[in-house]
Design a protein around this nucleic acid. Structure first.
Lengths: 147, 147
DNA sequence: ATGGATGCAAAGTATTTGCATGAGA
DNA sequence: TCTCATGCAAATACTTTGCATCCAT
């Protein structure tokens, strides 16, 4: 996991300010927190004693996205979540039962598919999103069946 | 394209009512309308002279989802869209420039990947969503570069 | 001190709920 | 007539905007 310091240093060099709010939010993302909505992020900060206005939360999320430090993920329930971009591209396993979200990587992902479509439709790919929904091992083992 | 009549007949048999609102919404989805948000659906209905309350729109969308006639799609902008499920599973090419959405199918989609993950993580797959974002042929040809 | 960052209030948009009324079958 | 379906108003949730103030550099 890349350390907070190098990211902060990069931001500082580009003229952005290392406020306590910014550091707290960044630290939360780096601590391994999974995808969070803006209200969830605000609540988590508050539970840590960091009281941040919701407007600031949204603005900071926009900022971190613009800096490519975080990205937006949509997991099928209509909510916008944000997560640390980290080492780059990955996907999600969403348990529809316990709502837990697991991240995982896929090597040689969908390159071939994109190349083929690109050729056929003259579509220039920028990115893609791929999420899987199902029942995680804990839920299927502990409870038996989906309600 | 499956005709409206067979769907209506199925619903009627199950005891649901074929109201003019329901028929208008279903007809819109079947007419090849792409993914739409609830407000967009309401606006399109209104432009056709069908004035439906927004609450009814949301409830009808829930109903059609429960009947597996439509499904929800998320295309990266935080809005919930709904589309006709049609012949089943497919994906989207979203142009980030003109916002046009093209649907396409992928044979032998991600079955192997799911099987592999299922084995390794004991995750029971229900469904997945896969959307591609980029620049469509029209936008790249007509305008040259992304703004 | 300068300009980015923050807070606050208010507005905008999306979605849900309760209750009374309307209309298919 | 018996429910499903609808409309309306209000509540809730999410997100954005304008403006004054603050604070890291």
């Amino acid at each position: 996991m890349p350390d907070s310091d190098s990211i902060l240093e990069k931001l500082r060099k580009e003229g952005f300010r290392l406020t306590s709010t910014r550091k707290a939010i960044l630290s939360l993302f780096l601590s391994g927190a999974g995808p969070m909505t803006a209200p969830e992020l605000q609540a988590r900060l508050k539970s840590e004693g960091v009281d941040v206005n919701k407007t600031t939360v949204y603005r900071e999320l926009d900022f971190l996205m613009a800096q490519k430090i975080t990205r937006e993920v949509q997991l099928g329930d209509g909510l916008r979540r944000y997560e640390y971009f980290g080492d780059g591209h990955h996907h999600h396993l969403v348990c529809v039962r316990c709502k837990n979200i697991e991240c995982f990587e896929m090597t040689a992902c969908l390159k071939e598919i994109e190349a083929e479509i690109s050729e056929r439709k003259k579509f220039t790919f920028i990115k893609h999103s791929l999420e899987f929904f199902g029942i995680c091992s804990y839920c299927s083992g502990a409870e038996g069946k989906v309600p």
